[in-house]
Design a protein around this nucleic acid. Sequence first.
DNA 1: GCAAGGTC
Length: 856
Amino acid sequence: MKLVVTEKNDAAQQIARLLANAGKPKQDKVYDTPVYRFTVDGEEWVNIGLRGHILAPDFARELHYSKKEGWTAVTAEGEILPASLPDTLARPPYDTKRKPFLKDGVDIKGWKVPSLPYLIWAPIEKQPAEKGIIRALKNLAKKADSIVIATDFDREGELIGSDALRQMREVAPDTPVSRARYSAFTKPEIEHAFNNLVDLDQNLADAGESRQYIDLIWGAVLTRYLTMARFGGLGNVRSAGRVQTPTLAIVVEKERERNAFVPEDYWVLSGALAPKGSDDDGFKVTHATARFTDEQKANAAFDHVRDAKVATVTNVERKSRTNKPPVPFNTTSLQTAAAAEGIGPARTMRLAESLYMDGLISYPRVDNTVYPKSLDLKDVVKTLSAVPQYRPVCTDLLSKASLTATRGKQETTDHPPIYPTGAADPDKLEGPAWRLYNLIARRFLATLSEPSVTESTKFSFDVEGEPFSASGTVLVKPGFRAIYPYGMKKDEQLPALEVGDSCDVRKMDLEAKQTEPPARYSQGRLIAEMEKRGLGTKSTRASIIQRLYDVKYLKNDPCEPSQLGMAIIDALTKYAPHITSPDMTAVLESDMTRVAAGEDTQDDVVRHSRTLLSGMIDALIEHKDDLGDAIADAVTADAKVGVCPKCGRDLVMKTSAKNRSSFIGCMGWPDCDVTYPVPSRVKVIPIEGEQGVCPVCGAPRIKCQPFRSRAYEICVNPACETNREPDVKVGECPVCAAAGKHGDLIAHKSERTGKRFIRCENYDVCSVSYPLPQRGELHATGETCPDCGAPIVEVVTQRGPWRICVNMDCPGKEKKAAAKGRGTSRKTKGGSKGTAKSSSKSTSKSASKGGKRSSK
DNA sequence: GCAAGGTC
């Protein structure tokens, strides 16, 4: 039996399909891992797909951190340093007797902390990360007569293959092993690869492993340093890494530019003209000097034209422009295009993964932007014509004798560019999933379509001796724009005018303006910038940006660094500049190339990198307290929501030690006891400037962003006049009624917590109460619930009015939930955390709504 | 409670 090991399940399946020459491959499972059995010229073959890397590098066992002991470097014997270093590693070039960082073995909240200088030189081991796959792999390797490593044809692929081989060698030490190298899933390419097997390139695998080690060493050492410099509490990691830190630096650099920006005054003289005698509002004209930097000159020009009645056309320029259709999508261009449509890169990849698994799009991690010859374009168009929105364009394309597709600059042959492989039903996909599919399908059709032609017109005018101009652009031949409207500008139509025609001057205005600072990066542009600077790969960029948000270095979209993010970059730029620059990646790349070429060894390259970091650790440790203070200040600044109306100190977001809920508290505590509640399940965004102070009570106003609904602003003080709501009678108290007395049920808003709830008017003696939705206008209906007898209230929100029985335990609710839950279970599985949470409420509705909205 | 790289 011949065993073929690929990098992923998808590849195992494709290779089986292409090589089987006696019937279709049979799918089987070995310990839950899918494998494909088939025969080639009478020989039995088995294909197994790994899941990327199956081993993960980590520090030697005694240096592992555990939940119980934290980041300890303490051995079982209480010894700080591991007993011995592997011979291949040099002894650390530092004095082990010197005072270590955060004194070894000192307890910090129960954690023992290792010496960082030592961690740099700590031995690294590779541990199994995919135990199920490894078991299946070994099981098959034992039975195999020969083994072919057929992982992806790149550095990481060679490393994944080498790791797999190491595992197999434990059970099959003598089985012959070879390597298949292919770069496209086509029959000739795969057959050629398997007829011309080579040996595994250990140098290339070593190059990949050096990358793993260097990333781990720098990442772990600097992350531990930043995290321990000022302990931020559980869950507050301050991370650093070869890719994430330079990426953060890019965003911080832009913010610095913005902060250093000095706005300049300029003036714009513009007005409206209309063809003589017409009665429309006219079109916009601007003075030939688009920006006056001299106020006097602007005023002088304005004085000439402010009372003008007539403008004369002095010149007409018409230009027609052909716009080429876009090129096929690869991962990066999909991410940037989706980001422009409001789907962030990380979410795009999650959605793309699930569209791929559902057979709706091709493999989403690809650099290629040229469709392979083997892809039957017409066939894809035929498939897409099943989607009503695309049918007219598909019919049009299918009527052509042949189809020509655009080509991008990057051409690789491992996977085709991202294209639709199935027809989606807008009603069956959730909103964002449909929007992404729609983008991909339309992009595909656009790459096969004609160019679009726009015609732009520029009129020049004379108004009382001052030169003015107007321009407009009109789409005269839609071409690909008929199917691909993304990022399209609106038509600006100008009337038909010729030289010598005159127009009525409708108005003239002089506007004082200021130059704007450079714009922040959108997530899409940040992805593009990372690619430009060689940071990360198509598969990692989205998650790295997400990570920067998760550790609170970045906030908002477009990307804005937090004070914490700026402080981290500040400190690292000073004491470990290497990690903040993309150069580290560039140097690593050239090192890898030398290792792969056999001109350098893994040990040398890793040792050199360790030495470099060693040289920085002294300065870092020396300034640990400065950095700790800077981090603490930055975190406080990030948490600030306003100023205490009582004592004038900062009010910050705090977390209750008791139940981990958030509240706003004064930094002056315990001298000042001012606290305010915060609505639960919302993201709190401080409001800067005057708008952030309540004009009525002086407490801060904040913006609350609930998950997936509209943000609102409130004063944080629940007792404030602006938060007061009149009590509403919503029914009668059943308990009091049973006892023979009368009690109204009142909807009431607490002045202490700001929470709205229903209580019996006899609340001093009667404990009947019900919770209420916290947002929306409340109305009594006078009705009671048929299932439980509790009052029914009406709540009016932005989505419209809805009615609800106020009893949380009402038996009627379970019935409804069960009925709703059934139809949507499929969606909650593949989606994000967020979609899972909101499943029962909004899935069915948002799916159909989203479909209609984006089917332009 | 560490990175970045694969893939799910």
